[in-house]
Design a protein around this nucleic acid. Structure first.
Length: 421
RNA sequence: CGGGGUGUAGCAUAAUGGUAGUGUACGCGGUUUGGGACCGUGUGGCCCGGGUUCGAUUCCCGGCUCCCCGACCA
């Protein structure tokens, strides 16, 4: 994409109504727009990152045999009344609305109830199990206090997967499969080295669950980490009993601030019992389905990546989720030979399948470099009169600042593509 | 939901009981051109409602907004 055509603009100053680093940088760089507290729109660059994160998650869910669907934001109270979760005293984050005829409706804050009821149409026999079904769907949560930029919002897309098993053993297998898939996701978005499977409270579902917690100063939780074993314990369940279960002592653990980027729950038969989701075994006996639920919020993940990897000059995106792979920064565009070369390089890279943001604006070099640092694309390729005279492209790695002089052929080879592809 | 702040131009900010200045952004002219350059010039603003007052952006009351701390976080 030509940057001269990008409608968003970078800002020098952070907005006064944002304190969090993620919101400040994402707004300054033109990735997101704040509609109101806890409600953000995604602009072209931000949507690209968001979609790339979604693609990583989708890929891992599919590899784990997840089947993608889309449920609805509008929710039928009846199915929630069946589990006791329609009551505002039980669930205080409901956004509720009504039909013209006065019938109440809810805006979904999660989807255990509707998917459990829906699966009754499709699961009847042990032969129908196991199953894993997921979606990317907008959740609405009437949080009393939205905060920390995109980390805790009132409207957000969540990837929620639900597993259905015929036995505890089968459930445990699915649970472990999802745990591995989650670890793959966090590694691919660049947080693998600082994200830990964390023993946590099960909330209303069960006694315990697992959270994936990324160690960051922006975190809202306190966890105790054992890096060698790659495990952690949330402060809320930091008890002697849990320590003993996990085979660690307080001396093995260090306290860290962390942000939750994923959560996996064993639901048991809580929902299948309440809503009548059951199957017949080989003997014809009826049993409730054993369920699990597994959530990741792509926007929150984007926020945690921002908090974790950005530096004083701006955003720093890992290659797999960056809005573009290459930021082609062309200087001296008033020189028609330089412009022709830059245009040609842009066309060739794009044709070869490399995602390029081409800064073809006629503005000063300083502004271009500052914008490039702020936007945070992994590789900056500089084209200028000087570069043209020397015959070698200047390639700067955003994360490290490393500068390399490459020929065009070497640049293409670097991306594993052929120049004349 | 408890507590503390906040609200002035697109953005960031200053001052002020007599309707507001600066930076940036934007328009125009000119000089510049590898780290947000400079000169000139122009456009553009006091959250909403009520009260006090000759007069309110300023003081008072109420509301709303946004931020932060705590609680909550399915």
């Amino acid at each position: 994409m030509r940057q001269s055509q990008l409608f968003t603009k970078t800002r020098r100053e952070a907005p006064a109504d944002e304190q969090s680093k993620n919101a400040q940088l994402l707004i300054r760089a033109g990735y997101i727009h704040k509609e109101m507290a806890g409600v953000y729109a995604f602009l072209p660059l931000g949507l690209r990152v968001f979609n790339n994160i979604v693609a990583v998650i989708r890929d891992e869910m599919n590899k784990a045999a997840g089947q993608e669907i889309t449920m609805t934001g509008l929710q039928d109270p009846a199915v929630w009344q069946a589990t006791g979760r329609w009551d505002d005293e039980v669930v205080d984050v409901w956004f509720k609305t009504a039909l013209k005829n006065g019938s109440p409706l809810g805006l979904g804050f999660t989807h255990e109830e509707p998917i459990t009821r829906m699966m009754k149409d499709h699961i009847n026999s042990y032969k129908d199990l196991p199953q894993m079904v997921y979606q990317f769907q907008t959740k609405f949560r009437n949080e009393v206090r939205a905060k920390s930029g995109v980390m805790r919002t009132r409207e957000f897309v969540m990837k929620d997967l639900y597993s259905f098993a015929k036995s505890q053993e089968e459930h445990d297998q699915l649970y472990n499969t999802m745990a591995t898939a989650y670890e793959n996701v966090f590694a691919r978005v660049g947080l693998g080295d600082r994200t830990f499977k964390t023993f946590a409270s099960g909330g209303v579902f069960s006694k315990y669950s697992h959270e994936y917690q990324t160690v960051t100063d922006a975190g809202e939780d306190i966890i105790y980490v054992n890096r060698e074993k790659g495990i952690a314990i949330n402060e809320e369940v930091y008890t002697d009993e849990v320590l003993a279960d996990l085979g660690v002592t307080k001396n093995d653990l260090t306290q860290e601030k962390a942000s939750e980027v994923g959560n996996i729950f064993s639901l048991g038969t809580r929902f299948s019992d309440a809503l009548g989701l059951s199957f017949k075994d080989e003997a014809g006996d009826e049993h409730p389905v054993i369920m699990g639920s597994y959530g990741i919020g792509p926007a929150r993940l984007m926020g945690v990546v921002t908090e974790s990897l950005s530096d004083e000059n701006g955003l720093v995106w890992p290659e797999e989720i960056a809005p573009f792979s290459v930021h082609l920064v062309a200087l001296n565009l008033e020189d028609s030979e330089v412009r022709d070369w830059a245009d040609g390089l842009y066309d060739n890279l794009t044709t070869a399948g490399v995602e390029v943001l081409y800064d073809d604006r006629e503005v000063r070099a300083g502004e271009k470099f500052a914008d490039s640092d702020l936007i945070g694309i992994p590789y900056r390729v500089v084209v200028s009169k000087k570069v043209k005279d020397e015959g070698l492209l200047e390639v700067v790695t955003r994360a490290t600042g490393e500068v390399r002089q490459l020929t065009e052929e070497e640049l293409f080879a670097d991306f594993g593509v052929s120049r004349n592809a």
